[in-house]
Design a protein around this nucleic acid. Sequence first.
DNA 1: GCTATGACCTAAT
DNA 2: AATTAGGCCATAG
Length: 107
Amino acid sequence: MKPQKTDSFYDKIYAAVQQIPPGCVATYGQIAALAGNGGAARAVGNALHKNPLPGVIPCHRVVNAKGRLAPHFAFGGTGRQRSLLEAEGVEVRGEYVDLGRFQWRSQ
DNA sequence: GCTATGACCTAAT
DNA sequence: AATTAGGCCATAG
């Protein structure tokens, strides 16, 4: 049997994003993998775009495979994100983040 | 079940 | 560097 206590994949995605520790960032593919579907990066992006739980989901910790922030953000823009990430200790270069140093990984 | 959408990924032009 | 094209997946109507 499967310990499935959620209904939609989106719900897992939101949970995965909330699991991201401060000072770290995760890629869409990583969130998709945590949600149980590696490769569903697109679904992850859609889930966050809908952002049903603003203020609860730290979307600013989610970046794409290149460590780049989204072109648009439900928070007000990438500039807004840059401030939040830097505030947590993440070095942001324009719209890019150093994945080799701040990408969230199992410790 | 099909169509349309999307904050993705990669390659090609 | 920017745009286009194809591929991948899930959701909503």
